[in-house]
């Protein structure tokens, strides 16, 4: 009896693992790709396949990379995609209190700064969300939602580059 139950549970778990990703998530990713393409911003998919990367050039051979997360965040009926850029990296040390105060007290029109530790490396990012709730499947370049996405990406780039220069000086984060 116990063995039968255990086998049943295992079969159910295997079904879950082998099951295709949720179709709505894939549909959201597809809609985001379509929207990004319509923005006319050049982008490529990251190596991990998790994000779309838009690289921007700035004066003085400075560069800034903006990541648009493909996987949607779903909360309270909303479908959102993170858009972020890295503005500071600490080799192994977390940002000190003074740096945190300097950065996190920067209130921009949109978005917010946050920090993270990935694989032992500390970083500070600036990010915001693109609300893709009810985003159409087909979009032209002049669709308001496309303009919104384009300008959100540009805004993240602008803040990222500005903060990068402020925090790192000539040591461009790229």
């Amino acid at each position: 009896m116990i063995a039968t139950l255990w086998i049943g549970a295992l079969a159910a778990a295997l079904c879950c693992v082998l099951q295709d990703p949720a179709p709505e998530v894939e549909a959201a990713k597809a809609r985001l790709r379509t929207a990004m393409s319509a923005t006319a911003i050049a982008f490529e998919q990251s190596e991990s396949g998790l994000s779309l990367l838009a690289r921007f050039d700035h004066d003085g051979d400075r560069k800034q990379t903006v990541c648009v997360a493909l996987a949607p965040n779903q909360t309270n009926g909303l479908v959102c995609h993170n858009i972020y850029t890295t503005v500071w990296i600490g080799a192994a040390a977390a940002p000190d209190e003074a740096l945190m105060r300097r950065v996190f007290a920067q209130a921009k029109k949109l978005g917010a700064f946050y920090m993270l530790n990935e694989g032992g490396t500390w970083a500070i990012r600036f990010g915001l969300q693109f609300d893709a709730t009810d985003l159409p499947e087909t979009l032209s370049a002049d669709h308001p939602r496309v303009k919104e996405l384009r300008d959100l990406v540009r805004f993240v780039d602008a803040v990222g580059e500005e903060t990068d220069a402020w925090l790192n000086g000539a040591n461009d984060m790229k």
Binding site: N73, Q74, T75, L78, C80, M100, R101, F104, A105, Q106, A107, G111, A112, F113, Y114, G127, L128, Q129, D131
Partner: peptide
């Protein structure tokens, strides 16, 4: 998933 914190 939506929003972030700001220090004031």
């Amino acid at each position: 998933r939506l929003g972030g914190f700001v220090l004031e």
